[in-house]
Simulated scan of single mutants.
Amino acid sequence: MSSAVTTVPAAPSEIAREPFSAEFTFETDCWDVHDALSRESDFVLLDVRSPSMFAQGHVPGAINLPHGKIVRSKLERWSDQTVFVTYCAGPHCNGAARGALRLAELGRPVKIMAGGVTGWLDEGFELAKGSDT
């Protein structure tokens, strides 16, 4: 007897490796971002929510750049090779993907921080308040 989980069999390992490893080229997680921010990070973390949401609480070290305002002129201070990591409110929000798409359309390397603010808090990490970054 099989369940809804096993009715469709899992892909053979040699087939599963490629899509699972490709996933890491598109996203990172809160733990990896937190760890990287505790040292000199090699990416720019973008909070793509509104300025008011950013001020209520954001990942320390993040820069607020709402996804609708991501344009070439706002990115000029960073080299073309700078990796951007976008995040929004959480898994229920598609702002991080919207921001990532805009960055990709501008030819910038980008990943999404899976979980967003919700994931950050779920991991027990603190948020910064205010609009100073």
Rank of each mutant, 00 (worst) to 15 (best):
W120S: 08
F84P: 00
K111N: 01
V71K: 12
G95W: 02
G116R: 07
D122L: 06
G116A: 11
R98W: 15
S73F: 08
V117N: 02
R108N: 05
C88S: 15
H67N: 05
L121N: 06
E76T: 14
R77K: 15
A114I: 14
S79N: 11
S79P: 11
A97N: 11
R108V: 11
R108Q: 05
Q81F: 04
G119T: 04
R102I: 03
K69S: 12
G68N: 12
T86F: 01
L103A: 02
T118F: 05
V83N: 06
G107W: 02
V110K: 00
V85S: 00
G95I: 04
R72W: 11
H92K: 11
D80T: 10
G115E: 03
G68D: 13
L101T: 15
G119R: 03
C88H: 03
G107Q: 09
K69A: 13
L121W: 01
S73Y: 09
R102T: 07
A100V: 07
E76G: 04
L75C: 09
L103K: 08
K74I: 02
V71N: 05
G115T: 01
V110Q: 00
N94P: 13
G124T: 02
Y87K: 01
A89D: 13
R77Q: 15
G99E: 02
R72M: 09
V83M: 14
R102A: 15
T86L: 05
C88P: 06
K69I: 04
S79L: 06
H67W: 14
G115S: 04
D80P: 01
E123M: 12
E123P: 01
M113T: 02
K111E: 02
A104W: 07
P91E: 14
I70F: 02
D80G: 06
A114C: 07
I112A: 02
M113C: 03
A100Q: 13
K74F: 04
G115Y: 03
L75Y: 02
R108I: 07
K111F: 01
W120C: 06
A97Q: 12
V83T: 14
V71T: 14
K74H: 11
H67S: 04
L106Q: 07
G119M: 10
T82V: 05
W120L: 07
R72A: 15
H92M: 13
R108H: 08
N94E: 12
N94Y: 10
G116Q: 11
I70D: 00
T118S: 12
L121V: 14
R102E: 06
V85Q: 00
P91Y: 09
